[in-house]
Amino acid sequence: MKAFAIALLLIASPVLAEPPTPPDVPLSNPVQEQRAKAVMAELRCLTCQNQSIADSNAAQAQAMRMEVRERIAAGEEPEAVRAFFVERYGDWVSFVPPAREDTALLWAAPLLFLGIGVALVARRFRR
């Protein structure tokens, strides 16, 4: 029944395609554009499968790019722009994991593995 109702709606609604988004307009200042690009590459698109907003064609990624460019153009630091998005969507939105207690193990992993390895190997060496 529900499926039938949805099918009816589909027929009744003339347009169900999302309107196309306007094209990206890069910042005129190349240094700022570079900085904005770097931030975009580290923000995760909300409606995609594991893509950064820099790489996504999704409409919302486009809105987020616009926000990044405006904030960078207004002189905001890249860290502050990232914080703006994290405040709204949580740590998930940033591809840079936070440095906190609950990610200590993650950030310590390289040294931890190297350390364990060196400790294991040390006794194999002849003095």
């Binding site: 590459a41 998930w92 591809f95 936070p98 990610t103 993650l106 992993a109 390289p110 593995f113």
Partner: peptide, 30 residues
């Protein structure tokens, strides 16, 4: 060590969520 880092980085968000922690993303910067 690189293998360990890739393994930990790939599975960390899943482990953190399973432990009731925050949703995080571990991406290219890491």
């Amino acid at each position: 060590a690189m293998l360990g880092v890739v393994l930990v980085g790939t599975l960390y968000p899943m482990a953190l969520e399973a432990a009731g922690g925050a949703q995080i993303s571990v991406g290219p910067p890491y």
